[in-house]
């Protein structure tokens, strides 16, 4: 199942009429544990909460006489389950919720670090640089030939490379360490800096791989008599690590190591370029 197709179980921590109030420490520990397991929790209290939608609700509370009420949505759209948590600590509550999640087919969380590009459409000019740069088919276009993120789980964790080729600093990775890639404001200086970094695209597409090929040729002759896969891998790792450091491109070594061979990269790059060009041509003729 694609990650985009999954839904979240909404948990409601109920402390209103017919239920006991949790003390603040219990509330904190219960909430923290549930959040760490990936659940969305509504804490009922004074003031408004977000309106209901059609997703399932799991209502937890310390209900009177330990008896969880039964109720149903008046419109029949929302599945509502009540569960009594009296006597359960935060771990016990989490286990209860996990059981309910499994039976509701809601998403299991924490299996994938949510690392993917977020486009700032206020800044994006649909230049398609990102589409032509990414080798992993993360980007695509919508019906109006506008850029969009289509396969976010194809994105390589901790790799911000596409944000560095964006001439408008319009691509964010909210979990990145520093701005403007993390979503911080974009200053004049940073915008110029981002524009300069477009050269990395050429570097990745050309020079780096030429250097790899040259180095590979040299090492091939060196290892020709005693070649082993371990040595070849070691050489490749050493080379990539050095290149990553020298070029200051901030692409994790794991990502560089996982790149396909130079020929396949050239093919993928050509295909991505063709896609981007086709979109630009279609927009121009439209």
């Amino acid at each position: 199942m694609a990650i985009a197709d999954e839904t979240t179980l909404r948990v409601v921590l109920y402390e209103g009429e017919g239920a006991a109030t949790l003390d603040a420490a219990e509330r904190v520990s219960t909430l923290t544990t549930l959040l760490e397991k990936g659940y969305a929790v509504t804490c009922a209290g004074e003031g408004a909460v977000a309106p209901a939608d059609d997703s399932a609700l799991l209502v937890l509370g310390r209900f009177e006489n330990g008896q969880a009420p039964e109720a149903e949505d008046a419109n029949g759209k929302v599945a509502i389950r009540f569960r009594d948590i009296d006597g359960l600590d935060s771990e016990g509550i989490t286990a209860l919720v996990e059981t309910e999640r499994e039976s509701s087919n809601a998403a299991q969380h924490g299996e994938w670090k949510p690392w993917f590009p977020v486009i700032d459409y206020d800044r994006c000019t649909n230049c398609m640089q990102c589409l032509s740069f990414c080798l992993f088919d993360v980007y695509g276009t919508d019906d109006d030939q506008g850029i969009q993120v289509q396969n976010n789980d194809n994105c390589k964790t901790n790799c911000p490379a596409c944000s560095r080729v964006c001439p408008e600093a319009a691509i964010m990775f909210p979990k990145y360490k520093s701005g403007p890639i993390n979503g911080d404001v974009v200053s004049d200086g940073e915008l110029n800096r981002e524009k300069m970094k477009i050269d990395i695209s050429a570097l990745l597409g050309g020079d780096v791989y030429q250097m790899l090929r040259d180095r590979s040729q040299r090492s091939r002759s060196r290892f020709s008599k005693e070649r082993s896969s371990d040595k070849a891998l070691g050489e490749r790792t050493k080379c990539l690590t050095k290149l990553a450091a020298e070029a200051d491109i901030d692409i994790p070594i794991e990502v560089l190591q996982s790149l396909p061979g130079a020929d396949e990269i050239a093919q993928k790059a050509a295909a991505a370029n063709a896609r981007a060009q086709a979109v630009l041509d279609a927009r121009q003729s439209g």
């Binding site: 397991k37 804490c43 909460v49």
Partner: peptide, 17 residues
Amino acid sequence: AFEAVADLCEMAARRDP
């Protein structure tokens, strides 16, 4: 009253309704 979510990025990645 408040809503707490584990991770807005993850929800966005799932295009969570």
